[in-house]
């Protein structure tokens, strides 16, 4: 069976400059959480944005459940897009500033013309419950919510189309430390209970170790190393990975300077 997401030879450059991402390969299977690791400017967010269709790759292949996304006809692209969802880093910016939670969560259904108004409302309520928020919140406006609640709403919006793949771009970075663990637990739950494939973009190795089965490490647009989390952390082969591990333990690095 083909993986839910298979990226091969992905290269993205902005306005003819040095590629932000070059020749990236990675796969994510159903129910699997893969961590995409790297520092700022490594190109990891660009990979997620390319899969979500926000930036146009120069070349490469992105297959969703075995079907090629790049260069596909419009109807096929729409069908494949419905199977994935991107969750952004900043929950204060990624939700419309003046809309009710019910409408925010139901919007993907409206975009893809799924069901009638009543059915969409039901599915939105279902999704809000699934991320551990009270349904009473459905009538609140986004600006009335805390950062943690907002990020849960973002995940509810991701779930409502019953996607097979969620791309999570540093979803915990803007949250207070005491809320991060809950968010990571929620992501685990989505992968385990709903068999959703999750690509978790993060620079936080501690967090990645906690929930990712496999890691893909990026540095300056290239994948420098990838493998099962435990193996990779115990015996990093690349100096950059070693440096990241040292930094995460707050001890001086012996690797790349």
């Amino acid at each position: 069976m083909s993986p839910v997401l298979a990226v091969e030879g992905l290269t993205v450059s902005f306005r003819g400059k040095i590629p932000a991402v070059s020749d990236v390969d990675l796969t994510v299977g159903g129910g699997e959480i893969v961590g995409l690791i790297g520092g700022s400017g490594a190109g990891k967010s660009t990979v997620a944005r390319a899969v979500a269709g926000l930036v146009r790759p120069d070349h490469g292949s992105i297959r969703i459940a075995g079907s090629e996304l790049l260069g596909a006809r419009r109807a096929e692209v729409r069908r494949l897009r419905r199977m994935l969802h991107l969750v952004f880093r900043d929950p204060y910016a990624s939700l419309p500033p003046t809309a009710r939670v019910a409408d925010i969560v139901a919007e993907p259904l409206a975009i893809h013309r799924v069901g009638n108004r009543g059915e969409r409302a039901d599915r939105a309520a279902e999704a809000v419950e699934a991320v551990g928020l009270p349904t009473a919140l459905l009538r609140s406006f986004s600006h009335q919510l805390s950062g943690g609640e907002r990020q849960r709403v973002a995940f509810a919006r991701a779930l409502v189309t019953r996607p097979r793949l969620i791309l999570a771009d540093e979803p915990t970075q803007m949250l207070d430390a005491s809320l991060r663990r809950d968010m990571v637990d929620l992501i685990d739950e989505l992968a385990n209970d709903r068999r959703i494939a999750i690509l978790h973009v993060t620079h936080d190795l501690g967090l990645a170790q906690h929930s990712c089965a496999r890691l893909v490490v990026m540095c300056r647009g290239h994948v420098v190393e990838s493998g099962p989390t435990a193996e990779l952390l115990a015996a990093p082969r690349h100096g950059y990975t070693a440096a990241l591990i040292a930094a995460a333990q707050h001890r001086p690095s012996k690797g790349l300077s």
């Binding site: 944005r49 692209v77 897009r81 969802h85 952004f88 900043d90 910016a93 939700l95 993907p108 975009i111």
Partner: peptide, 17 residues
């Protein structure tokens, strides 16, 4: 360029929408 408009595009929303 704001995230919430980008989010719509990522959801596959048409320019008209």
């Amino acid at each position: 360029e704001r995230d919430h408009i980008q989010a719509l595009r990522a959801m596959g929303a048409s320019p008209v929408h």
